[in-house]
Write a protein that binds this DNA or RNA. Structure first.
Lengths: 125, 125
DNA sequence: CAGTATCCCAGATGATACTG
DNA sequence: CAGTATCATCTGGGATACTG
């Protein structure tokens, strides 16, 4: 057998099989973008910018490119004057919906407990 | 009615109800820690450090404190010589297990598609 | 053992201004 | 409109060394 090269980037995953997904789905700004796209449908760049409000165009572009590359979002360019670009969630992106719902459910049931834990922790010192 | 102060931190959530959970559960290093604690049970500081391997003691401490504060992990200090500290997942932390399983399932079904999408995207230019 | 204390740096983020 | 370019900032994270 040949020597196996050891993938350094894979190390955190060694202790956690879900680490790769987390990077793809839960890196900063991705959930607001995916959520909005899923909720409000196909949108233009400025609409996304307005809905997310605190994101800058630069960062929005970066995140959208990443999501497009990962196949979670579809970008459509209409060569008009002025140019029109539309973003929509892909089937792959849509397949995250149950997961997000699950997450929302956990949140509604347990976010209060987290707050309590924080108060207890902060109060105890 | 009194003026409502506007919580700036809440803005990204405006477009995304799950943003707060993501911060708590999916910030860096938290999934490997929670996963290990869930998988291998109560552990001492060094054991965690060994299992996660690339994490430095400083960062491990930071993350563990955060998880403890959020009520996802329980820290037990045994005043002995040498000191012994044990970490275990809390009930609240354990309640994330189905969610993590869901995530792992999505990963096994769709991570390949993400890779394909990346290849297609990178190849197309 | 279980951390703390420092120093340091890269990469991510934000603010602002400009272009096809 | 849909970005890009540039610059300033800043926090997280890593390396290393030290302590009760």
């Amino acid at each position: 057998m040949a020597e196996m090269a050891w993938d350094a980037a894979a190390d955190p995953e060694q202790a956690c099989p879900i680490a790769p997904v987390v990077d793809i789905v839960f890196s900063r700004w991705t959930t607001p973008i995916l959520w909005t796209l899923h909720q409000d449908g196909r949108q233009r760049f400025v609409e996304l910018q307005r809905r997310i409000a605190t994101i800058t165009p630069k960062v929005l572009t970066q995140r959208l490119r990443q999501l497009e590359r990962d196949g979670l979002v579809v970008r459509t360019y209409h060569p008009e004057v002025p140019p029109r670009v539309e973003y929509e969630i892909s089937d792959l992106g849509r397949s995250l919906a149950p997961l997000f719902a699950h997450l929302a459910e956990w949140a509604s049931e347990n976010l209060g407990k987290v707050d309590q834990a924080r108060d207890a922790y902060d109060g105890a010192r």
